[in-house]
Design a protein around this nucleic acid. Sequence first.
DNA 1: TATGAATGAGCCTTCATTCAT
DNA 2: AATGAATGAAGGCTCATTCAT
Lengths: 208, 208, 208, 208
Amino acid sequence: MDIKTEVNMEQAILDMAEKLFIEKGFDATSTVQIAKAVGCNQALVHYYFRTKENLFNTIFESKFRLFFQKIFDLSHLENMNFSEKISYFASSHFDLLIENPYMPRLILNELSRKPESIKVLREKLHSLPEMLYAQLNKDLQMEIAAGKVRNVDLLDILITVISMNVALFTLLPVAVNVIGMNSAMKDQLLKHRREENTKLILSYLKPE
Amino acid sequence: MDIKTEVNMEQAILDMAEKLFIEKGFDATSTVQIAKAVGCNQALVHYYFRTKENLFNTIFESKFRLFFQKIFDLSHLENMNFSEKISYFASSHFDLLIENPYMPRLILNELSRKPESIKVLREKLHSLPEMLYAQLNKDLQMEIAAGKVRNVDLLDILITVISMNVALFTLLPVAVNVIGMNSAMKDQLLKHRREENTKLILSYLKPE
Amino acid sequence: MDIKTEVNMEQAILDMAEKLFIEKGFDATSTVQIAKAVGCNQALVHYYFRTKENLFNTIFESKFRLFFQKIFDLSHLENMNFSEKISYFASSHFDLLIENPYMPRLILNELSRKPESIKVLREKLHSLPEMLYAQLNKDLQMEIAAGKVRNVDLLDILITVISMNVALFTLLPVAVNVIGMNSAMKDQLLKHRREENTKLILSYLKPE
Amino acid sequence: MDIKTEVNMEQAILDMAEKLFIEKGFDATSTVQIAKAVGCNQALVHYYFRTKENLFNTIFESKFRLFFQKIFDLSHLENMNFSEKISYFASSHFDLLIENPYMPRLILNELSRKPESIKVLREKLHSLPEMLYAQLNKDLQMEIAAGKVRNVDLLDILITVISMNVALFTLLPVAVNVIGMNSAMKDQLLKHRREENTKLILSYLKPE
DNA sequence: TATGAATGAGCCTTCATTCAT
DNA sequence: AATGAATGAAGGCTCATTCAT
């Protein structure tokens, strides 16, 4: 009669499923495992979520929405110039990944497992990306015109920021295992890379 | 009844398995599928490779070795300076990924599926990485001392190069699906990014 | 929130269960379906009827009794002669089947699913069949003696009447599907067969 | 190491499945039951027939074709007149049902379970029914014209023949259970009804 | 070398049923 | 009277693997 069990079995299933899906992927996670880990009957998992696919989607969509809404909401940065905005974007994207280090792999694998799910996801994002892009591009062109930033495509800038962040968190677990990095070393590396990524992007923007 | 197929069924299984494992991952690929795709009996897959795991490892290890040996072998670049070597490294790493675009995801998923496999893999690489690192670092320190490169850690440079390349190929399939990029657009983007990645790393090295 | 539904959920479940059991049979009808169709909780079905089997029996026995009592009650035909009684019996049996076209299949399948249920059913009918048979046979023997009907066993006559009616309604759905009969054609066929069945039985009784 | 098992497990599964499907219907028969009854692993049932549906169709289609081809082939009766042909048809249909007493129920239930299967079945029969009908009708019209048969629709005649036969075999199991008929009584009844059905149809054809 | 047959284990899912509230 | 939660059992199906030939 665990309190957690009594209070909300549905949520417990949801949490455990999230953990296992992330750890081992969709295919390698069975509903029996989820049930056993959460301490209930397998049938209960299907009682609440009907299918494994449905359970996964519930988790994935909520995570996905949360993840991208945070990234794309720069509305409160109106008085910054382009370089400041990009620095801010890079840092906040970085921080978001610290809290959700598994999201990139989760999204990547899900999209390769079910390519048609992309359409659904695009709807979730509405026109946020386009708006953000347009606004940032306006800022960028002003800076370029003012000679404060070299002539560079916004897309290349975003690719750089996102790639550096995503790759770090994607490759980190490998590095941790290969080098046998401990937690302190890992934290220090993250802190260092957070700054270095900003330096990188600023050096990339600097007029020649 | 292709002669090649008849003569060497073992190789045919190996090739098809490689294709399927890379496309769909270990879990989502069954030995039945492999057998059917290659046009032989399911039992033959096990006759040659005993277990599915073993078949996968055979493929993975050979791919893995090939992949990293190409990267780490810079022995023929002795008369280049550091910036040239890094540029060359970035480009050749990029080209390697063009030929093996699914390797990053394959490696990542395999390592997360079977973390202990890392030890095996390290043995395959011998001391190549350490030697490369030492040599590059000597070059880098010389350039820094000569004021031709700003004071930066070699690790950060390598992280930048590898991250930009890996992330590009990892995220590309997603972008292709989301934006509905066609093959020509994709090729052009790749060509552009190949140059832009070099620019990025050089701007990162430039003394302030 | 229909008042009738609210007032008597038990009856609503009973009605819906009858509909579904008849349409799809015992095995292919689940208590979940019944509950969903009637708009209540699945547990309520079991609250009222304890088991699915019990629910089915409740429905089946009441239907069964009703069905056969109508057939076997010819008490109000006392002043008819045998041929008239048989004609009347054939027609009223036919009309009963028009209102309960699925009863034959329901009874047949139920009996083959649970052969022991026959004993229960015999009790429901009491001695009605025997009484009816004895009375009809007395009438028949009088007509035969009077030369108005050829010498024929009552059982054969009853078999003919019942077979023709039951087979028609059993085979009709097949014919409807095979020939693609529309509703008007079906009605016309039924009307025609109702008369033809009577002709058939009368020609069967006619002295040679 | 039963000989039957060794010789042909696939056929044994087929036979046992046919038996069980007929006895208990599609839904009430599980592949585990079939496997257990035949003395093999459940997976073997799926190894040979992939799905339960497929196993059923294999059985059903072969039975169905056999059944109807026998009925519809009257090519060797060319020198008979209409009444003789119909008598022969009724008797041979009767005999066919003696050998396959379960076919009517099997067909009926299958068609109600999967109405779309009718289209497939019609193809199996090709144009046999139409040809038979046309030929018989020609014979019938000649007899009517000659005053040897009363003016009656061929369809009504066929309905009578088929209904009487099908209903007998459909209702017989019920009667056996209700009255507690033994095997000898049953055989005698069948023999009697075989003749009586012919009498019925001939009295139906007799000119008034 | 190659294969058909066979199996145990596991997976997703549905179902009838129970129980506490 | 009515319901949400929970469960054991079973069903159909796939899979990796083994074995005799």
